[in-house]
């Protein structure tokens, strides 16, 4: 009888933060599902050349719009059928995953750097710096993202680089807002003050005292912005002012398949579901990470 409480206390104490995190991680289905899908998509993108021997660009005008494997009249060499120009749909889908992931990642990195720099500076220094940062955030939020991106792409031409740059320079607002408030919350905490007291440089304080404590939030925002960027790219490409053909972008695939959607609906269903699942996965991952690292903020 007397042993039991002691044991319990011991077992509680021996649970390391890492173990607790692991326990939470594996108990979170949304996160696991998101992670699994994301790993699958990433693997598909990475190993695309191994998964299919077809080129996403090779056209065969005599084999157009072959249906996918579950429909009558399908061709075994084209598992997911072919598109309007007879290009292998599976190959386009796999190589398209590269485009989506590339856009998501690079955009999130660019906007992450901009937004974090701005947000941390605002949160840490406060005062005039904060005022200036808040002003910039307000200006950015006031600009309609879709219209401004469309306009820029129309002016400078649609290429992968331009789309990534445009989105990268437009989607930093959430980083800045979240980083600003996170840093504000901890800048007055004791250990930060202690670091200040012993004369650490500002760079050092920010990098070694502040950043590690806000990195969770950063990662969560990064996943959300990745998803956001992927959807935006798809929308821009759909409107014809994003990535240009013949690049196999999923948004472009939907846009091109749209013409035949009434009769060959799989042309938009396949890339549509792919896009949906990828974005869903990234969002679930982001939500999950937030729940796991900051369970009190769940909701």
């Amino acid at each position: 009888m007397t042993d039991t409480p002691t044991q319990t206390v011991e077992s509680i104490i021996t649970v390391t933060p890492g173990a607790l995190l692991r326990r939470r991680l594996f108990g979170h289905y949304g996160l696991l599902f998101g992670l699994a899908i994301l790993v699958l998509v990433a693997a598909a993108a990475l190993f695309a050349p191994l998964l299919t021997d077809q080129s996403p660009y090779a056209q065969d005008l005599s084999a157009r719009m072959k249906p996918p494997f579950w429909m009558a009249g399908s061709d075994p060499s084209h598992l997911l059928g072919t598109d309007q120009l007879g290009r292998d749909y599976l190959a386009r889908l796999l190589y398209g995953a590269r485009i989506s992931l590339l856009i998501g990642t690079v955009t999130a990195l660019i906007s992450g750097v901009i937004g974090t720099a701005l947000g941390v500076a605002a949160g840490y220094f406060g005062g005039k710096v904060d005022l200036a940062a808040t002003f910039l955030i307000n200006v950015r939020l006031a600009l309609p993202v879709v219209l401004v991106s469309l306009a820029i792409v129309a002016l400078f031409g649609g290429s992968l680089q331009i789309v990534i740059l445009v989105l990268g320079f437009l989607l930093w607002d959430r980083f800045a807002i979240v980083m600003r408030s996170s840093v504000m919350q901890i800048r007055g905490l004791e250990y930060v003050n202690a670091a200040k007291a012993i004369g650490c440089s500002k760079t050092r304080i920010v990098l070694s005292e502040i950043m590690p404590n806000v990195i969770n939030n950063l990662i969560v925002v990064m996943t959300l912005e990745m998803a956001h960027a992927i959807l935006l790219e798809a929308a821009l490409s759909f409107l014809g002012l994003g990535v240009q053909p013949p690049t196999p972008s999923w948004g472009l695939m939907i846009s091109e398949g749209k013409e035949m959607m009434l009769f060959q609906p799989w042309l938009i269903t396949i890339p549509g579901i792919a896009l949906f699942l990828l974005v869903l996965a990234i969002n679930l991952l982001g939500d999950g990470l937030r729940d796991v690292t900051a369970p009190e903020a769940k909701g």
Partner: peptide, 11 residues
């Protein structure tokens, strides 16, 4: 809500 965030509106 998760599905809503992931659904491409044009699709």
């Amino acid at each position: 809500s998760v599905a809503g965030q992931a659904m491409p509106s044009f699709w």
